[in-house]
Design a protein around this nucleic acid. Sequence first.
DNA 1: CGTATGCAATCGAGGTATAC
DNA 2: GTATACCTCGATTGCATACG
Length: 531
Amino acid sequence: MGPPLYRPQVATLVSEAPDGEQWLHEIKYGGYRIGCRVARERVQLISRKGIDWTRDFPEIAAAARRLPVRSALFDGEIAVLLPDGRTSFQALQNSLAGDRRGELVYFVFDLLELDGRDLSQVPLRERKGELSGIVSAAGQVRLAQHWIGDGGSVFREACRLGFEGIVSKRLDQPHHAGRTTSWVKTKCVRQQEFVIGGFTEPSHEPGEAIGSLLVGVNEGGKLRFAGKVGTGFTRALARSLRARLEPLRTRECPFAERPPGWLGRNARWVRPRLIAEVMFSEWTEGGNLRHPSFRGLREDKAPHEVGRERPAVLGISLSHPERVVFPAEGFSKLDLARYHDRVAEWEVPHLRGRPLTLLRCPDAIGGDCYFMKHSKVWAPDALRRVRIPEKKKLGEYLIADTPEALLALVQMDVIEIHTWNTRDEAVEKPDRIVIDLDPGPAVSWMQVVEGARLLRGALTALGLASFVKTTGGRGMHVVVPLAPERDWTECLAFSRDLARAVERQHRATYTTQYAKAGREKKILIDYLRNN
DNA sequence: CGTATGCAATCGAGGTATAC
DNA sequence: GTATACCTCGATTGCATACG
């Protein structure tokens, strides 16, 4: 008898995540469900329908071959892990097309056979136990994380972080092929209204019902096609929708841009009068709906009121969320917002109370960017404005004290956030000194690291704690926190003296001369950051 | 006899491969 | 380049069959 087939267990959709200690919860990764059979040196990756996918993911197969088993059947999901920690179905398909943006990871969540022992009749709790001894929590083949109990919180957190939803599994149940209720999934759904601009002829009842609805949203005064909705109605409802749409029939396509291909030529068009409520999982990169499902007609809204609803992060509404801000990596404004949301806990303490100088790029990096010090511009309310006396007049500055304020900066298309070395309660008394190590083009990164260590040594000898900050470029900042007691001139004098002392001792390596010429192989110690 | 379950159909986006 | 077929993911309906 050959090895048992890969017959995956699948989850039933429910509206609320279950609670209780008998349930564990995992992230719904939104990748491809894949079984992995290891037998001696042979590894095979198998799709949900039993098709061999080993050739499509050779690096996963190679990593699986190194697992410490003689034979095994693993179950899991292959997904693309984005740098912000989310996984993306879209990115996975791009990855199969050769576009590597993010890391391909096989998240393993079950073990059905181990070294000849059939584990399929063993409770999930024990299978998880065996699995955790074999697959580690890092690497290209990695253990899927899970949480026991409190499904509601796991679900809310998963949605907040931008995942598709969660899968909840009974710990006390054996494996069971096919759809069961001992595995359930809860999805983070989106729902909104769309204008109906047409429909397709159904294959079964031509002339009597509809196949799918063609829907769109208003964008810049035009109706933009957003996809087809072909499920969520019964046959009877499809017939009644046809009856409602038939009087609205027109020869002219109501969408500003005709849908591509066959659809654009063969769909039935209607005057854009009816509004449909549609549930869907997400917007695709092309601005279409993924997994759309009809919920009903909205009789209470006018078509011109229907637009794409702006996503919000931490309550800050983002315009142009899909705009690509980092073209090389393909990251959008929404990606940037989610990143700041994730790191806000660490980022905000360094921003709190500090007047800001901002680099804004309304197009993208590489487009037109400009530095902004004063805040005589529109900014969301979450940002605080302060007035600080300058040489001649009062200057108004922005300060970000909260995670919401940080997201407000993203909404303003801010790419770089530069802070003052003082806080607004005492603008004349710096609470830190920053010494910038700016390497010439011929200087290696390790030399910059050595420079930072040298400075830190000198500071420690003077009784001052210090830490380094990467700059995003090739240099490094050495930051010295201070009690806000000395004024600017004293801080500047101190950092200038320190920089010159280092320069005197190591003339071949360091300089305090700003002129570019002559310092290709040297590190400029820039003390003027404390001015 | 009603309910549960499995399976095929019919829809969706987005991808590949292949034929023309 | 365009069209077709088929693969992944998904939702949902409707029917046949199994079960208590």
